[in-house]
Design a protein around this nucleic acid. Structure first.
Length: 248
DNA sequence: AGGATTTGACCGGC
DNA sequence: GCCGGTCAAATCCT
């Protein structure tokens, strides 16, 4: 399913509007809320950046499918590499093995360890632009359950390269939630995670994601945005806003 | 040849 | 000494 550029831009703007509304709610309830507003602000700003990228770009943005296939940081590019046989419990990547969903960033694997508390190995990734753009974002990926396969992804650090990745091939956030778990598929994206770890469990088989975020869950994913076919924007259309979880 | 991944070694904290 | 995280040489693929 495809959307034209205008619809994508509108969707991004609507998302920014939704985030702004949430930010307002957060600020209104500041005395009872410990939620950080910085991620929301960043998300709003990124929504505008995404919208502008759609409008200004002379070439259409890569479609959703190509974006989803851009998983260089999560899936080995090669299937026959020696490590394939050595990954315990994973088998061959090419056998339609479900992998964690992409999060919009390009990661480079720099290590793998067997963790004492787990039978599965833990993989260590850092931003592919760690050196070029002095980005200190890292993440750890670990399978915590075999059947169905469940991955736990822990994000650390802050993406200082996000502005580049947004315009290159990623999209901004779709949904922000507080104190509730409602999103079916949520991955951290384009948000500032300053010194805070976000842990995500990704049940690969059904694309359902459990979250263990301890703070504001500014976890978002445009995948669902495109998949859910946002209706053409019209004045007063608040359908997108309805997807925003009300803060309580 | 260049870039990405693998994997054993190394390091620091406890 | 153990353990988790990172480094870097070796290896592999395009």
């Amino acid at each position: 399913m495809f959307f034209n550029i205008d619809h994508k831009a509108v969707a991004a703007l609507l998302h920014g509007q939704g985030c702004a509304n949430i930010l307002k709610t957060v600020l209104d309830n500041r005395e009872i809320s410990s939620v950080s507003t910085e991620p929301l602000i960043n998300t709003i700003l990124n929504s505008f950046s995404v919208a502008l990228s759609f409008v200004n770009s002379p070439n259409p943005q890569p479609d959703h499918q190509s974006f989803s296939q851009n998983m260089a940081g999560l899936v080995p590019r090669r299937s026959s590499k020696k490590k394939i046989c050595g990954i315990k419990g994973l088998g061959n990547y090419r056998d339609d093995f479900q992998t964690p969903r992409p999060d919009g960033f390009t990661w480079r694997k720099y290590g793998e360890k067997t963790i004492k508390t787990s039978t599965h190995q833990r993989s260590y990734y850092r931003c592919a632009y760690a050196k070029d753009r002095n980005c200190n974002a890292t993440k750890r990926l670990q399978m915590i359950q075999d059947s169905p396969p469940v991955y736990r992804t822990t994000y650390l650090g802050q993406h200082t390269c996000k502005a580049f990745t947004v315009q290159a091939d990623t999209y901004g956030p779709e949904m922000i939630q507080f104190d509730q778990v409602v999103s079916e598929s949520v991955t951290p994206q384009l948000a500032t995670i300053d010194q805070q770890a976000i842990v995500i469990e990704d049940k690969a088989t059904d694309h359902t994601t459990n979250q263990e975020c301890h703070i504001s869950d500014f976890l978002v994913d445009y995948d669902e945005l495109w998949l859910n076919e946002i209706p053409p924007f019209s004045s007063g259309d608040l359908s997108f806003d309805n997807n925003i979880v009300a803060f309580n």
